Amino acid sequence: MDPNARRLWKLLEPIHAVGYFSPEPIALLKEAGYRGYWMGYFAARSAPLGAVPAEVVHAVFYNFAFSHVSRALPDAWTYAPPEAAHEARRSGAVAALHRHLGPLASSDDLARAASLASRAALGAPMEGRTLYAALRSLPVPTDPVDLLWHAATLLREHRGDGHVATLLTAGIGGRESHVFHALANGTSPSVYATSRNIHEAEWASLVSGLRSRGLVTDDGQSLTDLGRETKTTIESTTDALAATAYATLEPGEVDDLITLLRPLTKAVVTSGEIPHQSPMGLDLDEVG
């Protein structure tokens, strides 16, 4: 595994995630007209793609049930266009970051972190990375806090697009990926019942499918040796693909970015607004 790519993911994910969990973007998405949290989520995250149908978002996001996506899209676009959804998430996320960061928001260290992260984000390869490429087409902010969130979001979705490609290659379906991760890391199924609508019957069916391929033990409680080997390969390949974004930075600049991000991420995490166990597999207790 590329250690720097993994460290930077852990540091950038909370900065990006204020766009989902902080009250400011949630309130602005509601004000824009979107009905309920999930309509706002799907509208805002998919907004850079344009007013695409549920089928496209289901394919790109990979791990949501189609029934979940189709309850929000394309209906969301009858309330407000994609541009409104993106602006609500962006401006809400920036406001939340200002609140979390306090004096750090105007510091030279934040401006330097934003500059380095943006160079990496804008220099990453686009090929095969649909959601990243859509975000890459948007205007680049000039305000440092805005730029930091923009860069964190680009780098997060760049990694996510690579992760989806890796899961496909490994033969792990989108819904299966949640169960696969949970069994590898001891994450409670309740995390996914809330965040991905995976309830008991579907969970059992997904476990059964993984078990039939020799990836899960007979009792359905953990991964087999083959499962653990597959999981390691997925994570190391995801890290390697994500690391291509940082090739535009010098090694010393990558180290600087890690150092500069630590106090910023800590300020966001200690707010308590970001869930400590992410459905993407990030344990925020590890951020330091």
Rank of each mutant, 00 (worst) to 15 (best):
Y34M: 09
D283Y: 09
S222I: 03
K231H: 15
L284V: 12
F21K: 05
S278Y: 07
L167Q: 04
P251Y: 06
Y132I: 03
G50Y: 07
G162L: 00
L135Q: 08
S177T: 05
A243W: 00
P23F: 01
K10M: 14
L8H: 00
V69M: 01
F61S: 05
M126S: 15
G174Y: 03
R228V: 07
I198H: 04
L73K: 08
L241Q: 12
H276M: 13
A240F: 02
N197E: 15
N4K: 11
E83N: 05
S46A: 15
S107W: 06
P25I: 07
V56F: 03
S137Y: 09
S205E: 14
A105D: 11
G171T: 04
G252M: 11
F180G: 02
A151R: 05
S278W: 11
T248V: 15
R156T: 07
T265H: 04
Y37H: 12
L206R: 08
V94Y: 00
N197Q: 13
A204Q: 12
V60Q: 04
A267I: 00
E83S: 12
R136L: 14
A17I: 06
A80C: 07
L168D: 09
S118T: 15
V140L: 10
N197C: 10
D256M: 11
L8K: 02
L73Y: 02
G162H: 01
D2V: 00
G227Y: 03
R156I: 00
L226I: 11
Y192L: 10
T78P: 00
M126R: 13
P125S: 12
S205G: 15
A243R: 00
N197K: 12
V269D: 09
L97Y: 04
V191F: 00
L168W: 11
L28K: 06
A32E: 10
L122Q: 12
A165M: 13
A76P: 07
S46M: 07
E286A: 14
T217N: 04
D285C: 10
P139I: 11
W9Y: 14
P125F: 14
V94G: 01
G162Y: 01
W77I: 08
A95W: 03
S118G: 10
E24L: 01
M126A: 15
E13I: 12
S190N: 06
A120G: 03
E24D: 09
R35K: 14
R156W: 04
S190G: 05
G227A: 05
G128Q: 02
H100A: 14
N4W: 04
Y192K: 05
A240G: 05
T224W: 01
L138S: 05
A96P: 00
G128Y: 01
N63T: 03
G186C: 11
S107Y: 05
L110N: 09
S46V: 06
D109M: 08
V287E: 08
V60W: 08
